[in-house]
């Protein structure tokens, strides 16, 4: 017999499945909710419920949104000839926050990874190739992460799209704002040198 009531144990288990949450944090969150005001718990429960009920995956860009097609895809004022390919929906949010991009997106939902066994067919790459064939796309920006997995994914997509006559570009790689040359690794630094640009271009 466990000393913890079943309902509590169940919530702890559920919390512990979340990324970055261990068993200790899970119990802390659970016991916090036990003491929290009724409205707060209700608000959390509603938010969780709504999350799945009202969110849909856009059938065009595979971003998550409230409508299908999503807000970005149905916004005709955006540049329809440019598609930015990203790994995760969170990356869309990050790029949108810059306010510097006015084109469309394509969310892959992951990156090719040998050690995690994630293959090209597990991602939305086939759908991207279809989009390039069917839509008036002129430029595809490969905005996967500058990691081994992201580079491999970009490389694979580039191979698939090379024969389709679109301009393929990759996000610039270089030094981060607030960075320090002394601590930069050779690869980042050499990429930064290769990709140097005119002052005040």
């Amino acid at each position: 017999m466990s000393a913890i009531p079943k309902a509590v144990a169940r919530l702890i288990d559920e919390f512990a499945k979340l990324p970055g949450v261990g068993p200790k944090t899970a119990s802390r969150l659970t016991f916090y909710l036990l003491r929290a005001p009724e409205e707060q718990v209700q608000a959390l429960a509603d938010a969780l419920y709504e999350l799945r009920r009202h969110l849909v995956t856009c059938s065009r860009c595979f971003n998550i949104g409230e409508t299908n097609p999503c807000g970005i895809c149905s916004d005709t004022s955006r540049d329809q000839a440019t598609v930015c390919v990203v790994e995760e929906p969170l990356d869309v949010i990050a790029i949108e926050r810059t306010g510097a991009y006015k084109g469309l997106y394509h969310v892959l939902h992951g990156a090719i990874s040998p050690v995690d066994g994630i293959l090209p067919q597990d991602l939305r790459i086939r759908e991207l190739v279809q989009r390039v064939k069917q839509e008036p796309i002129e430029e595809v920006i490969l905005a996967t992460n500058p990691t081994l997995e992201g580079e491999a994914t970009a490389e694979y997509i580039a191979r698939q799209l090379r024969s389709h006559g679109v301009r393929l570009t990759r996000l610039a790689r270089g030094l981060p704002m607030g960075g320090d040359l002394e601590y930069a690794d050779e690869v980042t630094l050499s990429r930064a040198l290769q990709g140097r640009s005119e002052w005040h271009q």
Partner: peptide, 25 residues
């Protein structure tokens, strides 16, 4: 952390990435 070997040529080739992946796994 400081890089000694980056194995650049492995990274440009999906097959070699897969092979290096097998070694490490």
């Amino acid at each position: 952390a400081q890089t000694l070997d980056y194995f650049t040529n492995i990274r440009h080739d999906l097959t070699r990435i897969g092979q290096a992946g097998v070694l490490c796994e």
